[in-house]
Design a protein around this nucleic acid. Structure first.
Length: 484
RNA sequence: GGCGGCAUAGCCAAGUGGUAAGGCAGCGGUCUGCAAAACCGUUACACACCGGUUCGAAUCCGGUUGCCGCCUCCA
């Protein structure tokens, strides 16, 4: 199936053609590790996790690189505040990043390079730029000269003249042009630094990505991603550095994800509305967060709100309920899904999902296919009679396989239904501050009342539970409950 | 000021030059001791507004309004 990708560079959806047939090299800008990850970081990481999963599902051999920026001004400032070394601080937040992203079911990248571990690559790249006349030393710093790179601005669609007209950058005397950016920054006493041909210092922000992407993917590769805010200046500068140094096209497809807003407001420290992943994981099932992040197209903004999360949770429950329903029907029949009955609807599911995902990774559309399938299977089960036929069981096994296959790509439906609902209950109890034993005692009591057909008492207990925000559901095999 | 994006039902959100996916919520029904869940049915004076192109546009073009992002560290 033809994969289309919207390319920020051309502002068009293009047919994806890898440089080497069957292989894809992808580099995504990771986080600067000076603070906890927020939901915006999570979106970017989850989106590119799904993109790489999907590329692999299509059969590509993917080399996925996602970096950590572990040295820069913010890290230095923050480390000073915390009384830690920059190394200690960045380690702490890298560990936290992994805790958060593991919980969200994000797979590790193939390479996760850190800037501080690639100083020599960075230095040799800067030297190369210097040799080509694209970089100059000024004071204790080394800058990239944007005027020496005629295509500067091609990614973000800006022209130097235009930008200069509305310049808001304070003029830096060290720079020849206000848009020149630092490649190597001389260090002040007490700052972390490395030896270099220009004296002790540290790399500028942009150069690490040029140096590390080249090391792991070569000077030219297929896909480069990141948040949309990175388009300018970061990615623009990466292009200038890499194409300036190697004189060939750096990246074929640029992918940028949109932002997360909180109740329609931009998330920012000054508004005090940033939501950390760690905090959110206490309130929501990780897969609900993940499904929420994938429910809009990756390039559109997505608004986080209690309401939107509640909707997403209900939607996710619906899929797990179906899986639960299927499992309790088929039991451990050990049916081999290879001997599948003809079912035209189920036969088309995979293709429809692929069509959605191949259209610029349209997860929202793909999720619609998932729910269509859920409805189909629920309807199918409604029509089942009490005599279990092999044919029916096989159809359900097939259906479940298709659901789980979609789940594999989106990174959801990773749990057994029973585990999922149990985890949700625990999160709910935690939020509501209720003991599990209390709930179970009341349900047992109600079961007794129901047994002797004391409906008044049974309903009274149900109301009591409802007051605690516990909702119950009587099934043939017993009563189940959840936190509302 | 420059560049770009978005405006679809109560809410969230896809999509297409030929007359609107999916989710949530609501209502009616089946089911249930009653509920819940699930399913069935139902819910858009037609897709911000005004022009234009077209046999036909919400989908293409131009303009207007509103919202947002980037241009400074930022996913």
């Amino acid at each position: 199936m033809t994969l289309y990708i919207y390319n920020t560079l051309t502002k068009k959806k293009e047919v994806f053609k890898p440089i080497a047939p069957g292989k894809v090299g992808i580099y995504v800008c990771g986080v600067t590790v000076y603070d906890s990850c927020h939901i915006g970081h999570a979106r970017s990481v989850v989106v590119f996790d799904v993109i790489t999963r999907y590329l692999r599902n299509l059969g590509y051999r993917v080399t996925y690189v996602r970096n950590f920026t572990d040295i820069d001004d913010k890290i230095i400032d923050r480390a000073r505040e915390c009384g830690l070394s920059t190394r200690e601080l960045s380690r702490k937040y890298i560990q936290e990043f992994y805790e958060d992203m593991d919980a969200l079911g994000v797979k590790r990248a193939d390479y996760e390079p850190k800037a501080t571990e690639h100083i020599s690559e960075i230095i040799s790249l800067i030297r190369r730029l210097e040799e080509k006349g694209l970089a100059y030393k000024s004071g204790s710093d080394v800058y990239f000269s944007v005027e020496m790179f005629p295509e500067y601005g091609k990614l973000s669609g800006r022209k130097l003249e235009d930008m200069l007209a509305g310049v808001r950058i304070e003029v830096d005397r060290n720079k020849r042009n206000p848009f020149d950016f630092v490649l190597w920054k001389g260090s002040k006493p007490g700052e972390p630094s490395w030896e270099s041909p220009w004296g002790r210092g540290r790399p500028g922000w942009h150069i690490e990505c040029s140096a590390m992407s080249c090391k792991y993917l070569g000077p030219q590769f297929d896909i480069h991603g990141g948040g949309e805010d990175l388009t300018f200046p970061h990615h623009e500068n990466e292009i200038a550095q890499s194409e300036g140094a190697f004189e060939k096209r750096f990246v074929n497809y640029w992918i940028h994800n949109g932002f997360v807003t909180i109740n329609q407001e931009k998330m920012s420290k000054s508004l005090g509305n940033s939501l950390t992943v760690k905090e959110l994981l206490k309130r929501y099932h990780p897969e609900a967060l993940r499904l929420f992040l994938l429910s809009n197209h990756y390039r559109s903004p997505i608004d986080f709100s209690e309401q939107n999360m509640a909707d997403t949770e209900s939607a996710l429950d619906k899929v797990y309920k179906l899986l639960d329903r299927i499992e309790s029907y088929i039991g451990n029949t050990g049916v081999d899904p290879k001997e599948l009955p003809p079912d035209h609807y189920l036969a088309g599911v995979r293709k429809r999902f692929q069509e959605a995902m191949s259209d610029d990774f349209n997860t929202a559309k793909g999720i619609a296919v998932l729910f269509d399938t859920v409805r189909y299977l629920n309807r199918f089960m409604d029509g089942l009679t009490s005599t279990k036929s092999d044919q029916d069981v096989q159809t359900l096994v097939w259906g479940r396989t298709e659901i789980l296959n979609i789940g594999d790509i989106l990174g959801i439906m990773r749990e057994e239904p029973a585990t999922f609902f149990e985890k949700k209950r625990l999160i709910g109890l935690e939020k509501a501050g209720i003991e599990k034993a209390t709930v179970e005692r009341l349900i047992a009591e109600r079961a007794q009342a129901r047994k002797r057909k004391d409906w008044a008492r049974a309903d009274q207990i149900r109301d009591q539970l409802r007051a605690l925000n516990i909702l119950i559901e009587d099934r043939p095999e017993g009563t189940v409950w959840k936190v509302g």
